[in-house]
């Protein structure tokens, strides 16, 4: 099996509004896929569908051999997610947050502690291990959020706008962290920062009004649109409907 994700005619409608419209794409194992789009383009809804947080109106997606409709429990065991907003337990310490997620994904107490210690070291959180999560800065909370997504050893990780609201330094540090994951697991990133996709992604999907307008590597997108930059290509692919 070469593909980690296969999306087939995936559609989600909310009371007459089509948020995700007949998506078809695949993501290879170990690939870093960035889903770009303006606010309301359908990125987060797509992620929520693939994470089994929403049921599709029609279509399906298969993640590492399991359908999100027929076997969501098996799908959930293979993935983890770092949601768009802060998603930590505020009154638990940094280490306790990590141990909680490890235990929820099936680790016993000892395994959870070993994994938490490993993750604290790997993500530079050891010094704050005993601090309550609510006392961390925004950047550190995002770092913890990503650590919580990684601690279950997922085969696919979803990063939903991981750097939104962060300052330049915190964003650059998070990019470094994300870059280190490349090739080890399949990463699906949603962002509306174009430079983030340019810096990190193997494959980029540009989404607009629920549809994928262009799919390919950075060079393929520039070549297909005849534009010199991703930003120009993005505007070209998305401006018609804006007018």
């Amino acid at each position: 099996m070469l593909n980690a994700v296969e999306v087939n005619n995936l559609t989600k409608r909310f009371k007459g509004r089509t948020a995700v419209d007949s998506l078809n794409f695949s993501i290879k194992k170990g690939e870093f896929f960035a889903l770009l789009g303006q606010n309301g383009a359908g990125k987060t809804t797509t992620i929520r569908l693939l994470c089994c947080l929403l049921t599709p109106t029609s279509g399906d997606a298969v993640l590492l051999g399991d359908s999100i409709i027929e076997n969501p429990t098996a799908v959930k065991q293979k993935l983890n997610v770092s949601p768009q907003e802060t998603a930590v337990a505020p009154n638990l310490s940094v280490k306790e947050n990590l141990e909680l997620i490890a235990a929820i994904y099936g680790s016993n107490k000892q395994e959870a502690e070993v994994k938490a210690n490993k993750m604290l070291t790997a993500l530079g959180l050891s010094e704050r291990a005993r601090d309550k999560a609510k006392t961390l800065s925004g950047g550190m909370q995002r770092r913890l959020s990503i650590a919580m997504a990684l601690i279950s050893d997922p085969q696919i990780i979803f990063l939903d706008e991981p750097t939104i609201g962060l300052d330049v330094r915190a964003r650059r540090e998070l990019w470094k962290l994300i870059r280190e994951l490349k090739g080890k697991i399949t990463i699906i990133l949603t962002t509306h920062y174009l430079e983030e996709a340019e810096a990190l992604a193997d494959k980029i999907g540009i989404m607009h009004y629920g549809k994928i307008r262009m799919l390919g590597s950075l060079d393929q997108i520039k070549e297909a649109t005849g534009q010199k930059t991703l930003e120009d290509a993005f505007f070209m692919l998305t401006e018609k409907e804006v007018e």
């Binding site: 959930k76 065991q77 998603a87 994904y105 279950s152």
Partner: peptide, 14 residues
């Protein structure tokens, strides 16, 4: 109100 529950909803918890 936070995304904490959304994170858990994506986990194998029933």
């Amino acid at each position: 109100s936070s995304s904490f529950l959304a994170r858990l909803f994506a986990s194998p918890l029933a």
